[in-house]
Amino acid sequence: MFSDADAAALYDVLNPWDPARRPEAGFCTGLVMAAGAVLDVGCGTGSMLHHARDLGHTGRLVGLDPTPGMLGRARRRTDVEWVSGTAADAAWDREFDLATMTSNAFQCLVTDDELRASLTAIRTSLRDGGRFVFGTRHPQARAWEGWNPSNAFDVRTTAGRELRMWHEVESVVGDVVTFTETTAERDGTILRVERESLRFLDAPALAGFLTEAGFTVENQYGDWRRGPVTETSRELITIARRPESGINP
């Protein structure tokens, strides 16, 4: 058996929120700690907001996620608000100084309608001048070309269980990549197969959707260390802002 709770626990093993080891964690933690009220969209297991509380954040922290297993693990901590839902379900009005989407969660917004509804809801949730920070894989790096069984990797759970994982691309249609993630015993016994589609948008396409939703792009980087976007960048890190009242984007 490999339950949703097991999958959520394994996610934390594979993606520890450690600013000393992960540039993304260092980048986002600084912004979170400087913001009075934070909405983490696609919060997963809540590790970023847990970490902020551990560092002494005293303001409002809200995590939003549609996955029961992930949110169940996040809710082990009760000093953060946890809400079940997607980005488009965000129903707050000018309540946050910062919204985040970490771990490339933004790429899960696959259709134009999903993107528009999600960006509109996130913008509405922000106060005037509030910022939306997210990262995506840059399509020019073609990350999906490495998602195949020959790149399987082994992992040990916190309970000591030995597992093997791999990815396999099913299709690439336009800027949408559909793939499977398989979790198995070391002997190859399949425990879980999850299918997902991700959208790979380049910088002009991202800017178009953000502008349409009423954001201005404040900064964009080619990595989480704030390097410039170049022809070899593997990531697009975007900081978008909701303009002050009366200021057109």
Rank of each mutant, 00 (worst) to 15 (best):
N148T: 14
D202F: 00
L191R: 07
R142K: 07
L236A: 01
A105R: 10
D40E: 00
E244K: 12
P23G: 08
G130K: 03
R226M: 08
A7I: 06
D112L: 01
T232A: 11
A121F: 03
F106M: 04
D113A: 15
M48L: 14
M48T: 09
D128Q: 11
V173F: 08
E168Y: 13
T102L: 07
H138W: 05
L39D: 04
S103F: 14
M33Q: 04
V38R: 09
G46E: 02
D65Y: 14
D12I: 06
F215C: 14
G30P: 04
G246H: 10
S118D: 00
E231R: 13
E170N: 13
T111F: 03
L14C: 04
S233D: 02
F179D: 12
Q140P: 09
Q107H: 04
T183R: 00
G208I: 04
G59S: 02
N151T: 05
D154Q: 10
T29N: 09
V177P: 01
D79E: 05
P23E: 08
F96K: 04
T102I: 09
C28E: 11
S84Y: 09
D113N: 12
G188L: 10
D54L: 13
P16A: 07
L198R: 15
H167C: 10
A8L: 03
I239K: 11
G135M: 13
M48V: 10
E196V: 13
R127A: 03
V133S: 03
T102F: 09
G146P: 05
G69S: 04
A74L: 01
L49V: 08
Q220H: 12
A25Q: 08
A9R: 15
S245K: 13
T45N: 09
L163I: 13
C43V: 07
A74E: 04
F106E: 03
M101Q: 00
D223K: 07
F215Q: 07
M70A: 09
G36K: 03
S3A: 01
R73D: 08
Q140T: 14
R156V: 14
V32F: 05
V80H: 14
